[in-house]
Design a protein around this nucleic acid. Structure first.
Lengths: 141, 141
DNA sequence: CATCTAAATAGAAATGATTTTCAATTGGAG
DNA sequence: CTCCAATTGAAAATCATTTCTATTTAGATG
């Protein structure tokens, strides 16, 4: 994702383009794996002499709310984040070993909607489809 | 689920049928909503003068591992547990308001397996499909 | 039924990720 | 340039969850 498109998206979400926020996006963008707040913090401490861990936590959640970043639901129950270039794919195959994230093009949304609506009369607020496993690479070793 | 079938399942998983473990299963079985460790503990403190919260946590995880109880992944990131009578349905529609859990018969496993296997060459270890929303009842109010 | 062993337990204490607080700072619209 | 709302740092709090250790118990076996 181009740097400039961040700016537009941030602006539309009323988030200021602060240096730290942009740096967090840059780190996520450069990573090929999902990252935890700690890791992001450690990477950025080199660039900013003052950077609090809470700032990283706060920004990540804001970026998730704004839809720029997706949150990974790891079996270990810690928070991980990933910047998915493809905004249309909400679902992922994550490798629990190396942390790689790959889009899942299959989406059950339509079927789920139908079932929940017709059978239960309920309303879907959100849904989670995440597949945990080992990627081709980790499978070899 | 009948009480006697618990015993068989516990035995086959090498879990002792202790009074507390059975009581936890009883509480879960009687509940129509998912429960957190705290709630279960509070209910059982009436029956056992000595009952530690860690015991509840430990037992719940053991029961999940044994496949008797399913874990709910709540958006608030706390742990919740639910005893699903229908062991074949791994997926649920949960109401974030009242806590009701309903089976989702639709399962994407086959399609996911195919996609992950054919496209990425990876191996699925587990997958999560959970739909969060409001049940028919909570929708009315 | 008595014995024995691995499993289970209580209780306290530790852990550690995440969140809150609040005063000080800063981005960016006008 | 000014100003206000958004952002931040630092410290402290939170709080669910885990660990530890000594003690107890379930249930297999004789």
């Amino acid at each position: 994702m181009a740097q400039s498109s961040y700016l537009n998206e941030l602006k539309s979400k009323k988030l200021k383009a602060t240096p730290k926020r942009l740096a967090i996006l840059r780190v996520l963008s450069a990573a090929s794996v999902y990252l935890g707040p700690q890791e992001i913090w450690e990477q950025l401490k080199k660039d900013f002499k003052k950077l609090g861990l809470p700032t990283v936590y706060r920004n990540l959640e804001e970026l998730v709310d704004a839809g720029l970043v997706s949150r990974i639901i790891h079996p270990n129950r810690r928070l991980y984040y990933f910047l998915c270039e493809n905004r249309l794919q909400h679902h992922h195959f994550i490798c629990v070993q190396c942390g790689k994230v790959q889009d899942i093009s299959f989406c059950a949304e339509a079927q789920l909607l139908q079932e929940v609506d017709q059978i239960y009369g309920g309303k879907i607020l959100s849904h989670t489809l995440q597949v945990n496993g080992l990627c081709r690479c980790c499978l070899k070793h």
